[in-house]
Write a protein that binds this DNA or RNA. Structure first.
Length: 227
DNA sequence: ACCATGATCCGCT
DNA sequence: GCGGATCATGGTT
């Protein structure tokens, strides 16, 4: 299915359709490519959604036509990225919760952990290095050299993309900075799991989180919610 | 006061 | 390794 067609659909339809699609990000250091593996649908009729209480300066992009970004700041330190979908005037979006890094992985490492002197963390990962003194890090060296930890959460994904503010919120996915490409082949329904969303206090039972079954790059909360 | 979170620590297996 | 508790930290309402 064409990306443009997905972006005109409601969030509940679009969220599973975005699984397997590719996310691109153009940065000075190169072009990043990731495969979307986990999403959540939010809608203005849904009390867990930022758009539920109406349009504000922050949430205005959710009410635009599909094909824009909605970026928000949360918990005093994190940013998260949504794909705005549906029709203008309806506040809905799909939260990107996790992705599989495909290209530009070293740039993603630097976006997540900062540039390092000498051998990069990316190279350490590739060499399965056990140097426990890089940047003074010891016990968590295995965590930061794990490629699965680059984008397996909404704020991690945003950080890996090099998004460090809300300046992209409301912008089009137009190919200059960040854009999408359709999945090569549609996922089979049996490859998609629907489950309750993560980290919300309202509508906690609605199965509006979607992820690719058995994918290693989904956020690590599966065991709480898998059926 | 409340968060669509992540990293760390700590006790347990 | 894993699960639960804790905390960092600031925009939004």
């Amino acid at each position: 299915m064409k990306i443009q067609e997905i972006l005109t659909k409601s969030s509940l339809e679009a969220a599973p359709l975005l699984l397997g699609c590719y996310l691109y990000r153009k940065l000075p250091d190169g072009i990043l490519k990731l495969k979307i593996v986990e999403t959540e649908a939010y809608h203005q009729d849904d009390p867990a959604s930022h758009s539920f209480r109406g349009m504000t300066t922050r949430t205005a992009p959710m009410f635009e036509e599909g094909g824009r970004l909605y970026v928000y700041f949360t918990y005093g330190m994190h940013y998260c990225v949504n794909i705005v979908v549906g029709q203008k005037g309806v506040g809905e979006a799909v939260l990107l919760r996790a992705a599989e890094p495909l290209e530009g992985i070293e740039v993603m490492f630097n976006n997540r952990y900062g540039p390092v002197q000498g051998p990069t963390l990316y190279n350490l990962y590739n060499q399965h290095i056990t140097d426990t003194n890089v940047r003074g890090l010891t016990s968590h060296i295995s965590g930061i050299t794990d490629i699965k930890n680059l984008a397996n959460g909404p704020a991690k994904l945003t950080q890996a993309l090099g998004i460090t503010d809300t300046s992209l919120s409301g912008k089009m996915l137009n190919g200059s900075s960040i854009w999408l490409e359709a999945a090569k082949e549609p996922l089979k329904a049996s490859d998609i799991v629907a489950s309750p969303r993560i980290g919300i206090k309202e509508a906690t039972q609605m199965p509006w989180r979607f992820y690719i079954k058995d994918n290693q790059f989904v956020s690590k909360y599966n065991k709480n919610h898998d059926g």
